[in-house]
Design a protein around this nucleic acid. Sequence first.
DNA 1: CGTCTGGTTGATCTAGATCAACAGGAGTGG
DNA 2: CCACTCCTGTTGATCTAGATCAACCAGACG
Lengths: 238, 238
Amino acid sequence: MVKRGKENRCRECSTRLSSEWCCLSGASLDALDRAKMPKTYGPGDIIYNQGTDCEGIYCISSGLIGLRRLDKDGNSALVRLVNPGGTIGYRSLIKKAPHSNTAEVLAPSTVCFVKRGIVCSMLQSDPDIGLEFLSHSLNELSETEDRYMESVTLNVKARLLHALLVFYERFGSKNGDEERMIELPISRQDLAELIGTAPETMSRTIQRLQNEDLAYFDGRKVRISNRANVEDFLHTAH
Amino acid sequence: MVKRGKENRCRECSTRLSSEWCCLSGASLDALDRAKMPKTYGPGDIIYNQGTDCEGIYCISSGLIGLRRLDKDGNSALVRLVNPGGTIGYRSLIKKAPHSNTAEVLAPSTVCFVKRGIVCSMLQSDPDIGLEFLSHSLNELSETEDRYMESVTLNVKARLLHALLVFYERFGSKNGDEERMIELPISRQDLAELIGTAPETMSRTIQRLQNEDLAYFDGRKVRISNRANVEDFLHTAH
DNA sequence: CGTCTGGTTGATCTAGATCAACAGGAGTGG
DNA sequence: CCACTCCTGTTGATCTAGATCAACCAGACG
């Protein structure tokens, strides 16, 4: 299932510029290039499992990864989606603790693995990398706090609309003609896990949005009928 | 309300060792000592407000601080409690963004302020400090993800019990005789905001815990009748 | 063809929000 | 000293969002 990807160089990696490696200079960039191991994954593949030890970090070059967390009762939640340019596994590496969630491939992906020893020595030699990780971590912290606030203050309908707007930003088609049409990157079940509700409720809420002319769903395609309407709703409603 | 505290030296600060400044060497420790400005605050004082610009960071020397976040609808949530040894405000400083929440004093506190310019230059000169901030941020991230998981999977009773156990760890009396008696550091209202529920529900849930012999409340004093029971409950119940 | 997985719908039940009243301090001010 | 308001907390009654259980359908896949 997991196979070695074709050759690809960090220098030419278009997603590197939006990652923690954007600041790398020529020499350490080459070092990273030699150290990294690109692999390709398919949907459903597991990159690492919650509770296992951290072997290194994974830099997402293309595709989509989901971080899932299980609790002792078997409840599962989709904690975060990671786009190309994102790096996963660094938290466990730095804290020297087992992975706190499972990284699951949601769309065909190319991922570069960098062994923990390499990362540690780069952290030692180049202080800027630590600051990049810090900045990355602070962004995730803000995002997670926002999600927490949402989960205790907003109802399912509002959370779903919010998630749709986020998808619109992150996955909206770049071509101008079908601006407000997006392709959902995940299944309805996963969507339910992402906003913290039951699949049945997800289904019903989608129906409601359609009845209320806020959004239209066709399989994984979604059209937001009136973006301003949706934003108005989110800014006024409970 | 806010007044200059008496002289106190970082070298002798017992809480420094559990903060990001634990790694400081002699020279930069003296620099920090000269730069910091200790202040004392009383309950209800605001250290900084959500949405305002970051002037610097605040190192909690004694007392208790609450980080509160408001959303556009006026909902308020207590995002985090910060004990002595904790540092607040560093997130906005590093991200160069307005404070994402309000820091409110919950118990009489002594807090050392360090201007942003000083922190920035220390970050430049001593890479270890950046790593300390990183580690700190990763801990907060884990904690927030846990809170998020709890809020979507556990009911109010379980969340309250969990909070009590956390209080037990963080605020439990050090003397051996009254081991399982703790003093709640916050009001019931704030407790409700901390676990994300309404004050009325908080009140009723407390009654339930007493009826079920799990914990006894007397004002702000709480006695967990059987710690093992509570932990069993948390590990099996939904 | 059966089996499985993902999604939809219907019926039911309940945790918890909400609205409302009230009770005990703690000031404050005459 | 009483009368007043303000604030925190408790209790009661009601209502609803959403979980849960169950049946069902459609496509995928052996």
